[in-house]
C-alpha cells in the first residue's frame, strides 16, 4: 500500500515564504498565545500570515483570538479560514469544534498528514505553526513531512521548564534542524536558566516577556490583545524574527 499524501505536502506549501514552528517540549509556557499574537502582529504589519494550530488535544488559538470556527470552504482542496484580522487559519477545531478528539499515534499522523496534503495555502510571508507539548508524534511528523521550516523555542524561566525544553533543543540540533532562537516567557528576573541555555547551545535569545496578569482579560479579543503589554513585548521579538534570515 502506498500513501499518496506525502508527495504533495511541499506543493501545498510552495507559496509560503517562511514556515515558523513554535515549539517547546513543555506545556503551559505560552506557545499558543505566542503563536496567536505573533500572527496578529504579523498580519497587522501587512504581512500575509497563516496560522496552523496542530494541538488537536487542546487546540486553543481560536479561543485566544476570539474567533468562531466553522467547517472550511473547499475549492481544489481545503481553503484556510480567513479571520477578521486577515490571518489564514487552520486548526482541528474547524472540524471537531470543542468536542474531544481522542487520537492514538497512527491517527495523529494520519490527521496531520491529511491537513497538510489537502490544505491549499495561498501566498504567505509567514506560516506560524503552533505545536502541542511533547517530543512525540506531532513534532516528529512536522520534521518528516515539512522540508522548509525553522523552529522557535518558547520556555518559561523555571528550571522545570528549561530542563524539558533543553531535550527538544538537543533533539533538533542533533537532527541539524534550523532553530531561529529562544523566547523566554513569563520571565522571572531572579533566574537565568533560559539565557544560560541559549548560550550553551549557541542560539539567540529573541526576547524576554514578563508575566502580565492582565493578559487573561485580553484573551478572546484580538483587538485588545494587539493593544496589550504582551503584544508590545512580543513585537520586539517578532521584529527580531522577521529580521533573521
Amino acid at each position: 500500500m502506498i500513501d499518496p499524501r506525502t508527495s504533495v505536502v511541499e506543493k501545498r506549501l510552495k507559496n509560503v515564504k517562511r514556515i515558523i514552528v513554535v515549539s517547546s517540549g513543555k506545556g503551559g509556557v505560552g506557545k499558543s498565545v505566542f503563536s496567536s499574537v505573533a500572527a496578529l502582529l504579523s498580519a497587522e504589519k501587512g504581512l500575509k500570515t497563516g496560522l496552523l494550530d496542530l494541538d488537536f488535544q487542546g487546540s486553543s488559538d481560536h479561543i485566544i483570538l476570539g474567533e468562531k470556527v466553522s467547517l472550511p470552504e473547499e475549492s481544489e482542496g481545503i481553503c484556510p479560514l480567513r479571520l477578521s484580522s486577515g490571518i489564514d487559519f487552520v486548526s482541528f477545531s474547524l472540524f471537531t469544534g470543542e468536542s474531544p478528539l481522542p487520537l492514538r499515534g497512527k491517527d495523529t499522523t494520519n490527521a496531520i498528514l491529511e491537513l497538510l496534503a489537502v490544505t491549499i495555502w495561498k501566498e504567505l510571508d509567514f506560516l506560524i505553526v503552533d505545536l502541542p507539548p511533547g517530543i512525540g508524534e506531532e513534532i516528529l511528523d512536522i520534521i518528516r513531512f515539512i522540508q522548509r521550516k525553522e523552529f522557535i523555542i518558547v520556555s518559561s524561566s523555571s528550571l522545570v521548564s528549561v530542563q524539558v525544553v533543553e531535550r527538544l533543543v538537543n533533539l533538533l540540533q542533533s537532527m541539524n534542524l534550523p532553530v531561529t532562537g529562544i523566547v523566554e516567557n513569563m520571565a522571572m528576573d531572579s533566574v537565568h536558566h533560559v539565557s544560560d541555555m541559549s548560550e550553551k547551545y549557541g542560539l539567540p535569545l529573541l526576547g524576554t516577556i514578563p508575566y502580565f496578569p492582565e493578559l487573561e482579560s485580553e484573551i478572546g479579543d484580538s483587538k485588545k490583545l494587539l493593544k496589550g503589554n504582551f503584544a508590545k513585548y512580543l513585537n520586539a521579538v517578532v521584529k527580531n524574527m522577521f529580521k533573521t534570515k
Binding site: 499518496p4 499524501r5 504533495v8 506543493k11 481544489e76 481545503i78 496534503a117 489537502v118
Partner: peptide, 18 residues
C-alpha cells in the same frame, strides 16, 4: 471538491515512482 487535492496526490505519487 477537495477530492482534486487527493487526485493530485495520487498522480504526483505515480510520477515520483515512474
Amino acid at each position: 471538491m477537495h477530492e482534486w487535492a487527493l487526485a493530485d496526490a495520487v498522480v504526483s505519487t505515480v510520477e515520483e515512482k515512474v
